[in-house]
Amino acid sequence: MSLDQLDAKPLGPAMAEAHRQLEICNACRYCEGFCSVFPAMMRQKTFAEGDLNHMANLCHNCRGCYYSCQYTPPHEFELNLPAILAEVRQESWESYIRPHALSKAFHEHGFAMALAAAIFIGILFWVASTAGADPSAGFYAHLAHNLMVAIFAPAFLAPLAIIALGLRDYWRDTGGRWPSIADLKSAFGSVAKMKNLSGGHGEGCNFEREDRYTNARRYAHQAVLWGFLLCFLSTSSATLMHYFMNWPAPYGLLTPPKLFGLSGGVLLTLGAIEMIRLKLKADPELSAKRVWRGEFAFTALLGLTALSGLLLYIATGTAAVRPLLAFHLGCVLTLFLMMPYTKMVHGFFRLSALIIEAQKSGGK
């Protein structure tokens, strides 16, 4: 036995079970043409903890491998790769993101935490908007622009810094190196097309229809991804117009902030609703069951944030603007502050895993 093996810490229960199942999969290789997990698995015969974390974050839980496998229960091997990789994936986020206890708390009490935070922060915004009302300030009559910047800038940047520290450790443990343009192109291309939600064959995955393929989950994810990016573009364009063009809000319908914001809000709302519908249909035994409530709560918070923004636009010029603005900003701030501890963090880790996989596979 080598010194490295003597010094290696024993794998935890989830890691050990993932190691067992992946060794069986690696011997069988029936699912060779499936998602990115399988090429990564087939490069080696045994797996360290970093390898297991890497493959778990490559897994998109499409479940095609489970429904194709001959070794699932009641077979004595009892393979359930989607579930065990989901558990390892969740444990990886909880171990890399600090403080660790907040991720576990959210996934156990997500609904209560998200709703309480959104309402509490919304009430604070309501009080601030009432106390500082200035009818001559246009859109910012309800809440001063400088106050919004002072609140939201650190609330957005601080969680990103926490995620960046976690990604640094993940990158080191999984053998990542400085990415090339080709690595980034491969990873971002995969994300843009949701390639791994097609099960590797383009027909879709089996998330909600067992042995029948469907692209419904792939399209829902694309709606959420592009909706979120469009909303971000809306905020970014409004910031540029405010500071560099001396053009403060409100903006007309045919301006970039409104065009990006409305289209993004619609996509994000519809995508979140569809993801909730699919999750309610999916077999919970093929996921990390302990975090089901937290994942559901995060998707609901995402959809509620987008929906409240759309309602705010519809209510323009009415008395409903002030309470809707307070609630919307409460949802947005809650989403930002909880970003490292909700499933939103999976986007950062999955993109990192795809970049690292592009490096290890030579871009294939």
Rank of each mutant, 00 (worst) to 15 (best):
T239S: 08
L229T: 01
S237W: 04
G252Y: 03
S190R: 04
M241W: 03
N215K: 03
G204M: 02
R168H: 11
N246T: 09
A150S: 08
R217A: 02
Y140H: 13
F232P: 06
G252H: 01
W126M: 09
A141G: 14
H201I: 09
L143Q: 11
V149P: 10
A158Q: 05
A133Y: 15
C231N: 11
I163H: 03
W226G: 03
A133K: 08
G189M: 03
N206Q: 14
A223Y: 04
I163A: 04
L197S: 01
V191G: 00
N246A: 13
H242F: 10
G132H: 10
A164G: 11
S190H: 02
R218P: 00
M194Q: 06
P248N: 00
H201Q: 06
P250S: 06
W226Q: 00
L240M: 08
Y219C: 00
L230Q: 04
A161V: 15
Y219L: 10
S180C: 07
G175N: 10
L167D: 02
A187I: 02
R217C: 03
A158V: 14
V149C: 06
P250T: 01
L157I: 15
N215E: 02
S198T: 11
E203Y: 07
W126K: 11
M194Y: 05
P135C: 07
Q222I: 05
A187S: 05
